[in-house]
Simulated scan of single mutants.
Amino acid sequence: MDEQAVEDIEIHLLLEALHRRYHYDFRNYAQASVKRRLRQARELMGLETFSAMQDRVLHDPAMVPRLLAFLTVQVSELFRDPGYFRALREKVVPHLRTYPSLKVWVAGCSTGEELRSLAILFREEGLEERTQFYATDINPDALAAAARGVYPLDRMAAFAENHRLSGAAAPLTDYYTQGRDGAAFDPALRERVVFHDHSLVTDAVFSEMHLVSCRNVMIYFDRALQDRAVGLFRDSLIRKGFLGLGAKESLRFSAHAEAFRDFAREERIYQRQ
């Protein structure tokens, strides 16, 4: 048996151990991406083999957050892909205004950039006070960072330009203050947010959602897991609710595609049939 085959067995057993011991399930994530991230983790942790990593994970719970930091994607921007947020502002918000109260689920919220973008957009469009946001992720450290809402000052110029291109009338500086630790966003933006540990692999739905935004998460799933996630979103949304995906994601080959219609095709926004 060659070295690559042995490594594949080790990775399979490591992912199985992570699932059975801690209930984090990466077994159906896109394997090329998982392998690349695990190799980075092994190198930076100074471990010779994935079997050694498995031993550490099984017997040292403190290893788990470190490993999750490699396996979950935590790079985002405020108003990333501004056209998506402009489409929400111009095309989706008029529909949302017809409801007396709203629920929005940001699935895979990472460190909170997308959540905060939506909270700012909903404030600007007069919907903040009637909206309950649900922000979920499998990484507890990422959820804690999302709740804090403090970002490096050197990212603010790019964030501000994205915000402007999303159709905002006011400057982004209206929403944060500069401090020693970075740009701290208005704490009121999280007053209507519930942060919750949730896995698209194993957990159930959030119900009666008007908008589900899950961007640049499913590209790391295999086809079966993508279908499971879309099924969750379908069951979570009210009739005529909206689903937003990332620029490289689509429902075209999903088993649940017939449950949705294209609403803003270029921006990957769909409406529940």
Score class of each variant (00 low, 15 high):
6 V>P: 02
14 L>K: 00
15 L>E: 07
15 L>I: 02
17 A>H: 03
26 F>E: 10
33 S>R: 07
34 V>Q: 08
39 R>H: 13
46 G>Q: 00
49 T>A: 07
55 D>L: 11
61 P>S: 07
67 L>F: 09
67 L>T: 01
71 L>C: 04
78 L>W: 04
80 R>T: 03
85 F>L: 03
93 V>T: 10
94 P>E: 10
102 L>N: 08
107 A>C: 08
115 L>K: 02
119 A>S: 12
124 E>Y: 03
127 L>M: 09
130 R>C: 14
132 Q>V: 07
137 D>Y: 05
141 D>G: 12
145 A>G: 01
151 Y>A: 06
152 P>E: 11
153 L>V: 07
158 A>V: 15
159 F>A: 15
159 F>E: 10
167 G>I: 09
167 G>E: 06
174 D>Q: 14
174 D>N: 15
175 Y>D: 11
181 D>T: 12
183 A>G: 11
184 A>F: 02
187 P>N: 13
189 L>D: 00
192 R>V: 11
196 H>T: 15
199 S>D: 09
206 F>K: 01
210 H>I: 00
213 S>F: 06
218 M>Q: 06
219 I>G: 03
220 Y>H: 09
226 Q>E: 05
235 D>E: 09
236 S>I: 00
241 G>T: 01
242 F>M: 07
244 G>D: 05
252 R>M: 15
252 R>V: 14
258 E>N: 12
259 A>F: 11
262 D>N: 15
262 D>I: 13
271 Q>S: 02
